[in-house]
Design a protein around this nucleic acid. Structure first.
Lengths: 193, 193, 193, 193
DNA sequence: CATGAATGAGGATTCATTCAT
DNA sequence: CATGAATGAATCCTCATTCAT
């Protein structure tokens, strides 16, 4: 279980699925299209490596989420204070959204189309850390008193909104966008004297 | 053309489509499910009233968008200044999101799954007015200098984020949520001395 | 039964059916298209006047066949000898094929698509008279000894071939075509000295 | 691509389609009937091997046309003069019409129901060679001066007429029919004294 | 492991026909 | 008589999944 070839094939298939979903949307992401995108000669191969479509899609989400988390954490855990970390977090989000646009779009599409049962782990895991950071900032007096969960959701939503904008308008100036969001949430969170 | 019965049936079918999409997602919204939800005896009846699935989905979007626009505009165009209008706009958005949760979820699902050609009219029409309001506030000196398009997107995204939260957690305290968002964007937009 | 209005409606529907079949082929000749062609507001009206589709199609065949027979007979029964009558018959066939192209095409399409049980009455009735004429010519010594049924079929087939040509190439020179067929069958039938 | 199994299945399906069309007519030739005729468990298998119905029908036409052309050419290209070749051509046509009745009927039905765009290749390709043979005979002085296109059409139509007769009356004496047609067109084409 | 053929359920859509008004 | 809404069977086609090789 989990030989090298096996791992490589699964990755190949997941990557193809990401590309198809990001390109044509989840609705058009059939095994047929994914197999063609991956250069496979049979959809049977996908079924061989994944128990069913749901499992493939779960892996798509898991993979992108792992990349994303690693990317963002590496840029956020800087040992600086919460305010600085929040700035780093937002910047990292925007950067990932632009460099991994297809991955993120695919993940959001899947999450919307195949909602998991109960509280969405995506929604939760992603937000928990951010809310914790915000609360830490409040404890240290760098942030004003706001509802950390609402603020976290607003920050994450702003990044998702950027994704939609990027889909419609790929030539967007990200430097400006980043700066605007940094200022926006700086003003929204900082201790009001 | 467009008799009373006809209109009633179309509305019935659109309502059923909204319910199915909000409940099971767009991917599962087949004519079969919609017909069952609507209590129709045959999917043929849907085809009788709508040229094809796309036309039905377009009407779903159009219907919800009309409700939404009317609801929000009625609460926003108060003759007050931009800052007050922005507060009204955000409050109206949150209120509509909670009272018409299924409608809004369905609309967003359809818009994501069936992207229209060219710039998404949903994305555009919805945002244009908000950005205009923000610029007006800047002209009048009520708002600071920010990129109105980015800010508009952030505001709308915050509302969409609320929707997702509501789906996962229907018991959410909306009064708190509204108040938090009002403060958030008040701080983010107001003229910094 | 068979009031004036009734008759008029049936004719209107049959004419529309002929136009649709000749234009788009039997396969596309749905009640919906026929109703639209006839300017009717409902396909129900067709069902009201015809027990079922088969009956409508039978009437299409019957109607065209009646027109055709009347047209040809009027030009053939000239009181002249069989050879002259054969010439008149062929000329009349070509003329009808050109002036009533749609009608004849529709009839042939229906006859091919909905073959009646047993010996095709179209095939029979149409040919019987012609074969009889040929045999009469043989009795009178104007024609050589050939199989009258085969010859009759060849003559009728030549006219059907003309129809196909007309469908593909409407600008055909019929005067030439007629003359050629007259000579062809004159040579084929006349007493060889 | 084009494995042995693949070819065998395609042939099996085409054969079943021919049988159904010849038996019940093109209008009744649904995937369901064809699958049943072929002993397949699902219409999906037909879709697996043919991109769509049109492609299947095109292959039906192509297959029969290839058989027919090969059959007739092998009996016509005898190195003899045009008159002898014409006799061979007619005899071969009649023979093929009797031995491959279903195939020919199916082909004609499809060609009538699914007219290709532009000039019908069936109508054209089939006739071109025959007309050429006739013109060659005129150049060599074996045939009289007639319109070669009209004559070619008459000859082909006579064969189609035989097909219709065979459908209605399978017990037809073909030896007689052949002899009659040979004489008919010999008289019609040969140089007059 | 990989292939491609096969399966059968489910998809949207078309259609002839029925029926209340 | 005419209308248009409704019905349900049938059509082609797509798809995830299975399985022998």
């Amino acid at each position: 279980m989990a030989s090298v070839t096996e791992q490589a094939r699964r990755k190949q298939i997941v990557d193809a699925a990401v590309a198809v979903i990001a390109g044509d949307g989840y609705a058009k992401a059939s095994f047929g299209r994914i197999a063609k995108q991956a250069g496979l000669s049979s959809t049977g191969l996908i079924s061989y490596h994944f128990a069913n479509k749901r499992e493939l899609m779960d892996e798509v989400v898991r993979t992108v989420l792992a990349e994303f988390t690693e990317f963002v954490l590496a840029r956020t855990d800087t040992g600086e204070g919460p305010a600085a970390q929040l700035r780093a977090f937002i910047a990292a989000n925007v950067e990932f959204a632009s460099t991994h646009r297809t991955h993120l779009l695919a993940m959001l599409d899947v999450a919307r189309a195949e909602p998991s049962d109960g509280p969405d782990p995506l929604l939760e895991a992603d937000l928990r850390g951010l809310a914790e950071l915000l609360r830490e900032g409040q404890r240290l007096g760098e942030f004003r008193e706001f509802d950390a969960d609402v603020m976290a959701m607003a920050i994450r939503s702003a990044r998702d909104g950027l994704l939609l904008r990027l889909r419609a308008d790929p030539g967007l100036d990200l430097a400006v966008y980043t700066e605007e969001l940094l200022t926006l949430f700086d003003l929204a969170t900082r201790r009001t004297r």
